[in-house]
Structures are given as structure tokens and as C-alpha cells.
């Protein structure tokens, strides 16, 4: 298996006014390609901070963060921006879609930034939106979609560019249980069918239940790292059948 993410002895210190907060205190773990992993822990334990560091949205105070073998500390702002665009997908708790763009345009955005040919873009996005259950809703704006539908658009946007990993920060926190189940089923299916690597930060028991690996963080350190028994492999796909 290939390590997509490697965290080695990562620390992160925030200074808020005169108060210094150690969010991470020597966090170390790796995420392999094709994993469906949840980082769990109480509020303030450092889950979101870890995701932000992996997502190249923030820089660690100490330690090493590598994505696909590249040390993020050695990369400039432009290179990090390109890394986020090309290799990392984000799914946020609050969906964070562009309100002036349609579902189609939101999903297309990263591909447009990458300069993918419009015809290819169209083909990929239409198929992607159908895959996430939004066929027929392509031209709706976020305000015209339910929370669950918006999160599906966000998932489509996150995987449109075939990233190495999708970082999902509390993706089910703003939706009802039924929608949460369907979103999780969708992400699980994408993981299994397309081999998309997912790394969640969550409190949600439903996510923990579906995740095949759970990294528990307490006070900025890994308290436990538990892998569930492997699922049988689908013939020829190389990804777990789930």
C-alpha cells in the first residue's frame, strides 16, 4: 500500500492573545491509499487541526506532514495551492458551496481551475453528479437544494479532480440522520467503487461505524489507532467491497 499522508511528531501551537494553546502534541500516523478512516476525539482534541495541516491549509509548529511523499513544509504557497487543487478534496461541515454557481458549476470549479478541456469537463461533471444522485439538478443553485443535496454537490466537487485523498470535516453534522446515512453510503460507495481515499474528522457514531479505521486523538496525541477487519476484495478492482 502507498502512504498518502504521513504525519510524524507533528505539533501545532496557537497563540490567542496572551493564551497559548497546544492543539497537537506530537501527532504521528499515516493514511494509505484507499483507506476509509475517521479521526475521532472530544472537542478540542485536535481533529480539525490535523485535517487542516494535512489539507495544506495551515502549517505545523513542529514535525513533518507529507502528502504523497512531499513534505509540505518545503513547499511554497503557490505549490501548496496547486497541491490542494490537484491532489486534495475537501468536504466541509457547512458545505461551503459558491452561492452564485449552480450545482454543475460548483462541481466543475476545480476542473476549470486545472484547465481541463470544457468538453471533457462537461462529460466528467455530468457523470459525477449522476453518480452522487443529483442527475437533473445540475442547474440548481445551492439555495435551491436541500442540505443533503448540497453536501452531495460538495462531495462531487471534492472528487471531481480525482484527488489522492478527500478530507471530510464533520460532513454529517448539519444534516438529519437519514441524509447522513445516505451521504455516508455515497462516500463509502465512492471509496469502494472508485478507490477514493477518505479521511474524516468526526463525532458522529454513524461515521465511526462505517469507517474501517479509527484514529482516536486526545489532547493532540494519538490515543488509539484501530483497524477493523478487512473487507473481502472485489475481484479486479483492488478496493474493498465494503
Amino acid at each position: 500500500m502507498t502512504a498518502i499522508v504521513e504525519l510524524t511528531d507533528v505539533t501545532k501551537r496557537y497563540v490567542q492573545g496572551s493564551v497559548e494553546v497546544m492543539a497537537l502534541r506530537g501527532l504521528t500516523f499515516t493514511v494509505e491509499a484507499g483507506e476509509f478512516t475517521a479521526i475521532v476525539g472530544p472537542s478540542g482534541s485536535g481533529k480539525s487541526t490535523a485535517l487542516n495541516l494535512i489539507g495544506a491549509l495551515d502549517r505545523p509548529t513542529g514535525g513533518v506532514v507529507k502528502v504523497e511523499g512531499r513534505n509540505l513544509a518545503e513547499m511554497g504557497a503557490r505549490a501548496l495551492s496547486q497541491l490542494r487543487r490537484d491532489r486534495i478534496g475537501f468536504v466541509f461541515q457547512a458545505y461551503n458551496l459558491m452561492p452564485v454557481l449552480t450545482a454543475y458549476e460548483n462541481a466543475e470549479m476545480v476542473l476549470a481551475l486545472q484547465g481541463v478541456d470544457p468538453a471533457e469537463r462537461r462529460e466528467r461533471v455530468v457523470k459525477l453528479l449522476a453518480d452522487v444522485g443529483l442527475a437533473g439538478l445540475e442547474q440548481r443553485r445551492p439555495e435551491e437544494l436541500s442540505g443533503g443535496q448540497q453536501q452531495r454537490v460538495a462531495i462531487a466537487r471534492a472528487i471531481a479532480s480525482d484527488p489522492a485523498i478527500v478530507l471530510a470535516d464533520e460532513p454529517t453534522a448539519n444534516v438529519d440522520s437519514e441524509t447522513a446515512e445516505s451521504l455516508l453510503a455515497l462516500m463509502e460507495a465512492l471509496n469502494q467503487r472508485r478507490g477514493v481515499t477518505f479521511l474524516f474528522s468526526t463525532h458522529d457514531a454513524r461515521v465511526m461505524e462505517r469507517a474501517r479505521r479509527i484514529i482516536r486523538i486526545v489532547d493532540g496525541r494519538v490515543e488509539s489507532d484501530e483497524k477493523k477487519p478487512a473487507h473481502p476484495q472485489q475481484p479486479g478492482t483492488g478496493v474493498p467491497a465494503g
Binding site: 504557497a77 495551492s81 496547486q82 490542494r84 487543487r85 490537484d86 459558491m98 452561492p99 481551475l113 466537487r157
Partner: peptide, 16 residues
Amino acid sequence: IRELGVMKALGVGPFE
């Protein structure tokens, strides 16, 4: 500002 932050997170560069 939040939206601009999301754009940056998605890989939109400062110049864009």
C-alpha cells in the same frame, strides 16, 4: 471572506 477562504482551500491562487 468565508467564501474566499473556501476558494483558497480549493486551490484558487491569490492571483486568481
